[in-house]
Design a protein around this nucleic acid. Structure first.
Length: 812
DNA sequence: TCCTCCCGCCAAGCA
DNA sequence: TGCTTGGCGGGAGGA
């Protein structure tokens, strides 16, 4: 290492101040690093060879996309900045003593956060799945002029989010944010299982009872409380297909930065509001690690590591620094500003695995068995241990899947427009769910593609043969009072035909009570047993907190995030453009929101109602190699694919009166909802959205418009991605920061944004567009939320910002 | 003075 | 055995 770092050291001490070129530095890019290609050698491959097919394509794309153009411009800047090292060297030779000292970059300029920005700037947020971007640590360290050690810090955190994965020594694959939604969802799930909420609350409570002192008594308390959740050793939450190779070979990695990073993120995801103080985080992490060693030094070390992680997460705009002011003073904390995460949809459950106790998933697509292994590792203490009931669910799901697969029905396609239009006309026309063989088959052109799909388990990661259709899934939803929010699909096995149906029930015809538990597999359940598990409140609040995020970095921040700059410029778009784009876009966070909204809709002892439609659920294809695990296929894959389908096919209109005759038992919604078409999941938010639009708990949908759109799309008079908006004006609501109290025991808590977040910027459309895809495959490949700049309420993609009790947030 | 977190030692473990 | 990885904590810069 010393030998290795020595050259870096020299570079670091070069006289040329990075400060003077901070902007350049920020925009520095791997010269050869064309987002979608594996960079050969920097100097061998000019950044943009106009005569290669790729560059031609890029030119075209660039011409069509301002965002791409700006990226190219930045790249050019970076090219020029690549000469800096040489210059530095020369200067170094001519500077001595103080001069040299002064010329050195300041501490800030060498921060991990800045470095991370530079690192992230090298790669696209959403690389094309077909072309992997590889990361060579040697190149990175050389080009960024940093010690390798620092890169490890960044990579580890990125790996924890599955934004990169280790290929081999010194080599990583860049996934970008494709996996982020799934990862976050999985993390949230695990976080919930680990009962972090309780731990946080307990710690906070204790803080108010007495000052923290790491003595035995306290440890005992901690131990007892933590023990209840069996925190045990660290484990790494993995997504199938995104292997964590390092984990299998290095035990110490289980208490590594990446695991810490995951747990840190979990804390945000389960918290309400999504603000976590370093102190609490450290305590929890230590508590999990070694309760007996809850000493000052360990605490300090943990804090250090958390700062490291936080810097990276901040660069990713997943969190931002704030200060929580309580009775005992101001404490550093971080607020989640990443995408909202809907908890516990089935696919996530199945995707989340822990390599800590199971071998890394093999190269091939994870099978059901693999998932089961991952989910139910033999290892005793395991964070991701699940109840045996889940095993049953797996089997149940498998059975269900078989049923579906045997269904003769032709594929059903649901277009983006389906979701798009739905939010506008909620209660009248239910979204059409579909798990279609056609979709799966049609899109699994190659084994690799399929592998990608299954492996990544990411909507965004879906092979994009039809990138333009990708987006539609996002149908967020918002903090809509659950009471009226949902149209929930119910799976009706149809023995005679062999086809299962999903029914979207209309709230007005409620006759079934359901229970929520993560996931959406529907199982008959006696009403008497129905219980409600979660509170919506927190979810709503979480959403609000999240919405604010993502683009919080202040405009004056020295390091204007490249990512932010690269965001598609939606601000000037017309409503119709937004509308269209929305229909084509699938922002990761929206997916999450959608899921969340779905959950929310289910989260309230909600009721299913006949909606007038029976939707046949068609096959979920098994593709030999391309075959996903049952869960993934049904849950994940279908989720990915259905977004591309046409909304009409396979829908069997049925009068509500007929539906009433259907024997629909109460449904218990259980985790691992393989059976449920992801499309159907998208349905819930739709209604929610409508509610949002109406800005009232009693939504006033526009049935006629809804029907009109439905018909128009159905008969092809309007494109799938377009609709005749009943309420085309997307409004924007300035998010009023976090609402709600920090904790039950901290009535006077306030939050101040810290320096990491620089300044708090007004709610910009950018905040909404941040997650756009930027794949050059076309505009449609970049999911987007419509950027609303006007109103007080934003319903774009079904997302709603509902200002609630305002949490005191101020600049640091 | 305290907060942040850079820096690099050094050990684990891989190739 | 050399190299990669990364845990760890001293201590310095900055607020």
């Amino acid at each position: 290492e010393n030998e290795h770092s020595e050259p870096c050291k020299n570079v670091l001490k070069t006289p040329l101040k990075q400060a003077a070129t901070s902007q350049l530095v920020l925009t520095e890019r791997q010269p050869e690093c064309q987002p979608l290609t594996t960079p050969p050698k920097p100097k061998e491959t000019p950044p943009a060879d106009p005569w290669t097919p790729t560059s031609n394509l890029k030119m075209l794309i660039s011409a069509a996309s301002p965002e791409i153009r700006s990226r190219e411009q930045r790249r050019q800047l970076s090219d020029s900045s690549s000469e800096v090292p040489q210059t530095k060297h020369c200067l170094q030779e001519h500077l001595l003593g103080d001069e040299y000292e002064k010329s050195q970059p300041s501490r800030k300029e060498k921060s991990l956060g800045l470095l991370c920005h530079k690192f992230l700037a090298r790669y696209p947020d959403y690389p094309s799945p077909s072309q992997k971007s590889y990361i060579c640590l040697d190149e990175v360290t050389e080009e960024l002029h940093v010690e390798r050690r620092r890169i490890y810090d960044i990579v580890n955190v990125l790996e924890s989010l599955h934004m990169v994965s280790r290929l081999a020594r010194n080599r990583y694959v860049w996934h970008g944010r494709h996996n982020l939604p799934q990862t976050l969802q999985a993390l949230k799930k695990v976080g919930e299982e680990n009962k972090y909420i309780q731990q946080i609350q307990m710690i906070k409570k204790r803080e108010y009872e007495h000052e923290f002192d790491p003595d035995g008594e306290r440890n005992e308390e901690m131990a007892s409380s933590f023990g209840s959740s069996e925190p045990s050793e660290m484990s790494f939450v993995e997504l199938p297909g995104v292997e964590f190779r390092a984990a299998s070979v290095n035990g110490r990695k289980y208490k590594s930065l990446r695991v810490m990073s995951q747990k840190f993120v979990m804390l945000f995801l389960v918290s309400t509001p999504q603000i976590v103080s370093l102190e609490v985080a450290a305590k929890i992490l230590i508590g999990e690690d070694q309760l007996e060693d809850l000493d000052k030094s360990k605490f300090k070390t943990k804090i250090r590591r958390l700062y490291d992680i936080a810097n990276v997460l901040s660069s990713l705009k997943l969190i931002k620094k704030v200060h929580v002011t309580e009775e005992r003073g101001r404490k550093p904390a971080f607020k989640w500003t990443g995408p909202e995460v809907l908890p516990n949809t089935q696919d996530t459950k199945l995707e989340a695995t822990s390599t800590a106790c199971s071998p890394p998933l093999s190269e091939s697509i994870p099978s059901k068995e693999q998932c089961s292994k991952a989910l139910f590792p033999s290892k005793g203490k395991q964070n991701f241990t699940r109840h045996s009931s889940l095993i049953k669910l797996v089997k149940s799901i498998e059975n269900d899947r078989r049923k579906i697969q045997s269904a003769p029905t032709s594929p059903v396609k649901i277009s983006a427009s389906t979701y798009q239009s739905l939010p506008v006309f909620p209660n009248t026309i239910a979204p059409i769910p579909a798990i279609t063989k056609h979709q799966l088959e049609g899109q699994s052109k190659t084994a690799e593609e399929m592998q990608m799909k299954c492996a990544l388990s990411s909507p965004e990661a879906v092979p994009k043969p039809e990138p333009s259709q990708q987006p539609a899934l996002s149908q967020p939803l918002g903090a809509c009072p659950v009471s009226h929010s949902s149209v929930s699909p119910v799976i009706l096995p149809h023995p005679q035909s062999g086809v299962s149906y999903a029914i979207y029930l209309h709230p007005s015809q409620a006759h079934t009570v359901t229970t929520y538990s993560p996931g959406f597999m529907l199982q008959p359940l006696p009403c008497a047993n129905v219980t409600r598990i979660k509170s919506n409140n927190s979810k709503v609040l979480n959403k609000i907190a999240t919405e604010e995020g993502d683009t919080q970095r202040g405009p004056d921040e020295p390091i204007k995030s490249l990512a932010a700059e690269e965001r598609p410029e939606m601000k000037s778009e017309t409503s119709s453009q937004r509308c269209l784009k929305r229909s084509q876009a699938l922002p990761e966070n929206n997916l999450i929101k959608r899921r969340k909204s779905d959950e929310e809709s289910l989260d309230t002892s909600l009721t299913f109602f006949p909606s007038g439609y029976l939707i046949p659920l068609t096959h979920c294809t098994h593709g030999n190699k391309a075959e996903c695990s049952s869960k993934e296929k049904a849950g994940v894959c279908s989720l990915q694919h259905t977004a591309y389908s046409s909304p009409i096919t396979g829908v069997i209109p049925m009068p509500a009166s007929e539906l009433k005759t259907v024997n629909i038992p109460a449904f218990h919604i259980t985790p691992l909802n393989i059976m449920l078409s992801p499309n159907s999941i998208a349905a819930a938010p739709v209604l929610s959205n409508s509610c949002l639009n109406s800005s009232s708990t009693s939504s006033a949908p526009n049935p006629s418009s809804s029907a009109l759109n439905f018909m128009l799309q159905h008969i092809g008079l309007i494109p799938a991605g377009v609709q005749v908006p009943a309420n085309p004006v997307l409004q924007h609501v300035p998010v009023s920061s976090q609402s709600e109290n920090i904790s039950h025991n901290s009535g006077s808590t306030s939050v101040q944004e810290g320096k990491l977040s620089a300044s708090k910027e007004p709610q910009e459309p950018q905040a909404v567009t941040e997650n756009f895809f930027r794949t050059p495959g076309g505009p449609n490949t970049e999911p987007s939320l419509s950027a609303n700049s006007d109103g007080t309420q934003r319903t774009s993609q079904g997302t709603l910002y509902i200002p609630q009790r305002k949490l005191e947030v101020s600049e640091d």
